[in-house]
Design a protein around this nucleic acid. Structure first.
Length: 819
RNA sequence: GCCGGAGUGGCGGAAUGGUAUACGCGCUCGACUCAAAAUCGAGUGCCGCAAGGCUUGAGGGUUCGAGUCCCUCCUCCGGCACCA
């Protein structure tokens, strides 16, 4: 039976998503919803709204257009932002463009279209697409890293770092990608290949600008304790920083003034040292060479090792090789024992001291090496399980044996005591390396330095910033690997800021991680020409309250930006030690079939098409409903129909809404409504969007079973759905006769007392097996037990006996034990 | 090898130690239709006519009760990779 149309209620046209979405997007823009309020955030006091800075990683505007990976994670944070606005918070949810980078430059090389022009086109596309998805960004704060007004401040930060000695030029063996003709940071090399194009990297010596991130290693590690990042993110950063505490100990070389300094985390095993190993690149090797008896072998080994690219070293299956420095003997500082000295390329010159003391009995690598070359294995630790056989490998801590006066001591204590006894020192080492900051490419921020024959490297005066990128004709790097800028002599030639004599500009540019290392800060004050950020606005908006992004940026962007922020803190630009209070991450979106979405595979999903066919609201709901937000998931366009049906059913329910129906007419529906308010709110906060959507579907299913839907219940449903499907809910809200947008409404509040309907569905188990269910209006244990025992299908299982024991879960389940 | 995460229907997935398979897709049947699509209704883990039994990667354990906790192992995904 069709319900008669309520005379007073306005008519609702058929669901036309294109019209509806366009109309509301225009409306929001015209009314300047979603603008973060600088005046409001400055207000302090109990009645001032809480500020909320939600941040998503700003995209690189590629020519391919917006990716579903962007739309999904942006929609997610949009839901959070919209919900927080409904909670009454003053939300800053900004967006911009991380537009420097190789793809645009390679595009310029291929087509001759300038990176500036290509960037303009691409950002226009991205902006249009993001608006079509209905993301509630504050577009008035849009930034672009390639805008000279922006990168002026990127260059400014570099200069401050230079002044503090954190930026230095160094001749380095760098990772060189022969295809992209670019040097790469360690972080950009994946399995010996270029992160971007997959080409195997080569080694090259080059003068490079380097940032001393290692000086911040300790703080970058420790301060993770004080931020609310997902644990897996903290763990990955900690592993990357690679803090390890140990001891630096010295071994004298017999008959020489030289000493070998070693780093070890196991000073407790010092008495078990049977040889010492140096890295082939170690400077000490050359110094000892005159005394070496097998010089030819040693030289041959060093040469072979230096030729090996890192790839070859790993490709060898990690078989350890080495050669003894015959005639050289080191003296164990603990017991005076003389041990042989070897060189081996499993010891890295770049970590620790470039030398290790080898304790084959208690270290797996040393053990393997000793076995291969028949070196002595001497046990000095015994574990509880009376394992003391001399040739057995024991890497755990235990009690010391064969260690003189330290016998019986625990490993933990002995590490300190033995270090003290041999005049060693307790030190901390990191795996983290300094950040190679130079790129020999065009499309990046010019490094604002001038090289003067007399004065050396001289920073460009701050008043002359920005050092703008000049127009060039050719974007290709030169064949000797220099930046295309080096060919623009009118730009390169300049005066030394110090002595005014002719000098040359630095032609290296910054890596694309530079502009993104501080962008969040600029959102607080995006148009400031005089300062990087107004100190007051900074203090009002910072830190970022919630930053969501990809796991792939954990050891790159996230670490770099924490480093820059700490530096800005040290020079007084910001007042928080950390830029981001909370960090979460989204799962990767894969193409149908679980493979990577890529242009070359032709399986890229275009949001424009989906919005046209299904609508932005459907796209949003589907993306969040498709699976757990933090896990990788394959796109499946066919499944989108479910989300579309859901929205259509919400739309269709409008005709069943009746103001006269009370929400409490049906206690079960009422309790479901309150449960849904609770669940959706909690799920949004914990990024459990898939279950939030499903609980909205459950509520809709329940309401559909009713002949007339109470307007209050329907309005609550719309409010809960509004962050997910902002357009259609605004449309329905208006159709209900409301004058103001649903996005200005406050978030529904549930009544804890109404979470239960007063009707209990009890599961009855006999000997832990489910045998029956029944409903009752009391959750009193005695009454429920009695009710359960009365059930005929239960009597059957009891066989006349009464239960010897019962377990009762209040209002839910009773387990009767017989027998 | 080390660190992190995950293995549940045909598929995506849900489940504070308490009815495993919610929600959605798909599929089957029915209604509407000349017909189809759309929509609506019923059903849908496996075995069994039924009563009932079995089922969350494998095997043990704790518990009245285990997808969930503990132990051993296997597989997949992500990160690191000779880090002393």
């Amino acid at each position: 039976m069709k319900k008669k149309q309520d005379a007073k209620k306005p008519e609702l046209k058929p669901y036309d998503h294109l019209k509806i979405e366009k109309r509301w997007q225009k409306h929001w823009e015209a009314k300047k919803f979603y603008r973060a309020d600088d005046k409001l955030v400055a207000k302090k006091g109990a009645d001032a709204p809480k500020k909320m800075f939600t941040l998503v990683e700003f995209p690189f505007p590629s020519g391919a257009g917006l990716h579903t990976g962007h739309t999904r994670s942006y929609t997610a944070m949009d839901v959070v932002s919209r919900k927080r606005r409904a909670d009454g918070e003053n939300v800053l949810f900004p967006i911009g463009w991380d537009a420097f980078g190789l793809p645009t430059e390679n595009y310029a090389i291929k087509t001759g279209i300038s990176p500036q022009k290509a960037t303009k086109q691409n950002t226009d596309t991205f902006r249009r697409q993001l608006k079509a998805v209905g993301i509630s960004f504050d577009w008035s704060r849009e930034i672009n890293t390639t805008d000279p007004a922006y990168y002026k401040w990127t260059q400014w930060i570099f200069l401050q770092m230079y002044k503090k000695g954190l930026a230095y030029k160094s001749k380095l063996t760098i990772n060189w990608c022969p295809k992209d003709k670019i040097g790469l940071a360690n972080e950009e090399v994946i399995n010996g290949c270029c992160e971007r194009c997959g080409t195997q990297v080569e080694k090259r010596d080059k003068e490079q600008w380097v940032l001393a991130i290692t000086k911040y290693a300790d703080r970058l590690d420790k301060d993770l304790d004080d931020v609310d990042y997902w644990e897996k993110i903290k763990i990955q950063q900690r592993n990357w920083i690679g803090r390890s505490e140990g001891s630096e100990l010295s071994f004298k070389i017999k008959g020489s003034e030289e000493v070998v300094n070693v780093f070890t985390t196991r000073a407790d095993t010092l008495f078990g040292v049977t040889y010492v190993v140096l890295a082939p690149e170690s400077g000490l090797v050359a110094k000892l060479m005159p005394q070496v008896k097998n010089q030819d072998d040693v030289k041959a080994y060093i040469q072979a090792a230096s030729k090996k690219e890192e790839m070859d070293r790993t490709a060898e299956g990690k078989e350890k090789t080495g050669v003894e420095l015959k005639g050289i003997t080191a003296i164990n500082p603990a017991n005076g024992q003389e041990v042989p000295v070897w060189i081996a390329d499993y010891v890295l010159a770049t970590y620790g001291t470039g030398a290790v003391m080898a304790v084959p009995a208690h270290d797996a690598r040393d053990f393997e090496f000793a076995k291969k070359y028949n070196l002595e294995i001497k046990a000095v630790i015994s574990a509880d399980k009376e394992k003391t056989a001399s040739d057995e490998l024991l890497t755990e801590d235990g009690k010391l044996i064969g260690s003189g006066k330290f016998n019986g001591m625990s490993s933990e204590k002995a590490r300190v005591e033995i270090t003290k006894a041999v005049n060693g020192k307790v030190v901390t080492k990191y795996k983290l390396r300094d950040w190679i900051f130079s790129r020999q490419r065009y499309w990046g921020e010019p490094i604002p330095m001038v090289n003067c024959a007399d004065c050396g490297w001289v920073p460009v005066p701050e008043k002359d910033l920005p050092v703008k990128l000049p127009a060039v004709k050719k974007y290709e790097p030169t064949d000797d690997g220099e930046s295309p800028l080096s060919a623009i002599s009118s730009w390169v030639k300049t005066k030394c800021p110090q002595c005014k004599k002719p000098a040359k500009r630095e032609t290296d540019t910054m890596p694309n991680w530079a502009g993104s290392s501080w962008y969040y800060l600029r959102y607080a004050d995006p148009k400031n020409k005089k300062a990087i950020v107004d100190p007051k606005k900074m203090a009002d908006w910072m830190p970022v309250d919630w930053y969501n992004g990809g796991m792939e940026h954990t050891t790159l962007h996230l670490l770099y930006s924490r480093f820059w922020h700490k530096f800005l803190y040290d020079i007084g630009v910001v007042n928080t030690k950390e830029p981001y209070k909370k960090r979460t991450s989204h799962g990767l979106i894969l193409a149908e079939g679980g493979v990577k979405m890529s242009k070359s595979l032709g399986n890229v999903v275009n949001p424009d098409d989906l919005i046209k066919i299904y609508g932005a609201d459907t796209l949003r709901v589907y993306q969040l409903f498709m699976g757990p937000f933090d896990q990788a998931i394959a796109w499946n366009t066919a499944s989108m129909i479910g989300s579309r049906r859901f929205i259509e059913r919400v739309y269709a329910m409008f005709s069943k809404v009746d103001k006269a129906v009370s929400v409490s007419a049906n206690k079960e529906t009422e309790s479901l409504l309150h449960k849904t308010i609770k669940k959706v709110g909690e799920d949004i906060e914990s990024l459990g969007f898939n279950t939030a959507v499903s609980s909205l579907m459950i509520l809709l299913n329940a309401l559909e079973k009713e002949e007339n839907v109470s307007q209050e219940a329907y309005e609550t449903l719309l409010k809960l759905l509004a962050p997910f499907a902002p357009h259609v809910t605004d449309e329905l809200w208006a159709a209900l006769g409301h004058k103001k947008s649903i996005h200005l409404e406050s978030w529904p509040v549930y009544d804890p007392k109404k979470l239960e309907s007063g009707i209990f569905k009890i599961v009855v188990q006999v000997n832990s097996k489910v045998r029956a269910t029944f409903t009752t209006e009391t959750d009193d244990e005695a009454a429920v037990t009695a009710g359960a025992l009365k059930l005929p299908e239960i009597a059957k299982w009891l066989e006349g006996k009464s239960p010897s024991k019962t377990f009762y879960v209040k209002g839910k389940l009773i387990n009767l034990i017989v027998g």
